[in-house]
């Protein structure tokens, strides 16, 4: 039961997704992203795809012929913008806001481009690999 994976250039995302929608993919289940800044080596990309720092991952589901398809879109670090899927699937609204909040990827045409999880005045995008975990050293008072 493995899902099919499609590598889609950013410019063709809308076209691909609307094609999939006509093919019976009724819902977008998930929109997320990965920051490949510290990944030691990516081998799972097809040769014609240039690896970029960010990858947007969109998962769609078809109910008629049960199955999922996963779209992987490369997003460069110096221009982290992607067209929004809101017009095709309104359910992506919150998911895209989360990606924008956590990774700083801008969704062009999104109706509500505000932070969703972090406070509005927060600086930085926590799930980027160059954002520190924020761990503070634990003190064991008993052993001192």
């Amino acid at each position: 039961m493995s899902d099919s994976v499609l590598h889609v250039p950013r410019e063709e995302l809308i076209e691909t997704v609307s094609g999939l929608r006509d093919d019976g993919y009724v819902s977008v289940l998930d929109v997320t992203a990965v920051d490949y800044l510290e990944h030691p080596g990516r081998t799972d990309l097809p040769p014609e795809t240039t690896p970029e720092r960010f990858e947007l991952v969109v998962t769609l589901i078809s109910h008629a012929a049960p199955g999922r398809v996963r779209l992987r879109v490369q997003v460069p670090a110096d221009d982290p913008t992607v067209p929004t899927l809101f017009d095709l699937y309104p359910g992506t609204e919150a998911l895209e806001r989360e990606v924008a909040d956590m990774f700083g990827i801008v969704f062009e045409g999104h109706p509500d481009p505000t932070r969703i999880l972090m406070p509005p005045d927060w600086e930085g995008h926590p799930l980027r690999k160059d954002f520190a975990v924020g761990r503070i050293p634990v003190q064991f008072k008993a052993t001192r």
Partner: peptide, 8 residues
């Protein structure tokens, strides 16, 4: 949860 989000 020793991280950025939670008050320690």
């Amino acid at each position: 949860f020793n991280n950025y989000a939670i008050v320690q």
